[in-house]
Design a protein around this nucleic acid. Structure first.
Lengths: 198, 198
DNA sequence: AAAGTAACTGCACCGGGTGCCACAACGGAC
DNA sequence: GTCCGTTGTGGCACCCGGTGCAGTTACTTT
């Protein structure tokens, strides 16, 4: 449930809802009526707040689907930071990516439902570019730090783009049919790439 | 200028404009007022048609920026199809990607301006996911055909995603500063990836 | 001149998103 | 208990992209 309201500054009107509550109500509606079939008025009514208030919690309808992704990015950054220096760069990045994606397997709403929604809804898959850019920036920073480069240099750019490409392939295949685990899909994607380039 | 109106069926009111005319007027306005600062009413006025008519030529404001991309995809498909069978798969894909992107270097509006607009405007870079998906599908089909797989199998999926990743890296670097040519950037991206994985 | 046809226009409407301001609900000071 | 500062909420007006529909315009054919 991930309680919110930690360390609320003194005074002021109490909040009427939480990110988590909005997220859950929203997913419930998306499940029933689909993404396009659900208006922000519907969500506001379901949550019990005004439409205007929704925008104080999420900057757009699209963003609700990603929840507080920026929070989990912090975890990702830490995971990368704690990778042993001895590990080859590609190995460190790969392990961190796997750890990051296997991590919130039991999130709420469930990982699979969220990713399925995102990857099959046109508006969401388009909007997600911005979340992916944030994710890539984390990788680019790590690569740049380890190689003494700027995050805007060629290598960090290429590595972060390719890492995303592999992750997206893995997710697409994983969501299409309930065969191998996501972890397995991620491993296989890398193997396929290596075999392809060899 | 790419004249349109080839083989117009008999009868009916003549067209009031062309895709090319709309594209040019639009880029002029984007250059002056920016993407967000330009409304569809502005464009319609500039072109000399009604707002409603714009939607008969382009499905959305975003799509104007890509022009008739689907046409150029046909070229891409043919380029791939004529690659020698003897060439290793990765080599064939790579050469086709390079040829495709160096091809319309002298397009109108200019290649560089278009790509800069697309990659720096948030709404456009998000929307472009759909064009990229079309582009990837062409690659996936080729890979599938050569390997006797379905386009939805792992290898075609991974290869098309990675090819896009490399292309996007190359474009990003190419647009950021006027150093090496786009062709060079594409070559280097692949070299960087190989070095990274080695 | 009339009929047929294809494209354009105008209008009403929907939904996401924003700026602005008034108001509600709390805690603290006295 | 009252007043005050604080902070989130609510309502409203408005902008803009996008769609459905119905009517009109301009050309070709017979």
């Amino acid at each position: 449930m991930t309680e919110e309201q930690g360390s609320r500054g003194a005074g002021g009107r109490p909040v009427a809802t939480t990110h988590a509550a909005i997220e859950q109500a929203t997913f419930r509606l998306f499940r029933e009526r689909g993404f396009e079939g659900t208006t922000l008025d519907d969500i506001a009514r379901e949550v019990g707040v005004s439409r205007r208030t929704l925008f104080r919690y999420f900057p757009s309808k699209n963003d609700i689907a990603w929840g507080q992704f920026d929070r989990t990015l912090e975890t990702f950054r830490e995971t990368l930071a704690t990778m042993p220096e001895e590990l080859p760069l590609h190995e460190a990045v790969h392990r961190a990516v796997v750890a990051f994606n296997v991590y919130d397997e039991h999130a709420d709403p469930p990982h699979r439902e969220r990713m399925h929604l995102i990857l099959t809804t046109p508006a969401l898959s388009a909007h997600s570019v911005h979340r992916y850019a944030d994710w890539r920036a984390v990788i680019a920073e790590y690569v740049a730090a380890r190689r003494g480069l700027a995050p805007t240099d060629p290598l960090p750019e290429v590595v972060s783009q390719v890492a995303l490409a592999l992750a997206l392939s893995a997710y697409t295949l994983w969501l299409r049919e309930p065969g191998p685990s996501l972890r397995r899909r991620l491993e296989d994607a890398l193997l396929d790439l290596r075999a392809y380039l060899a």
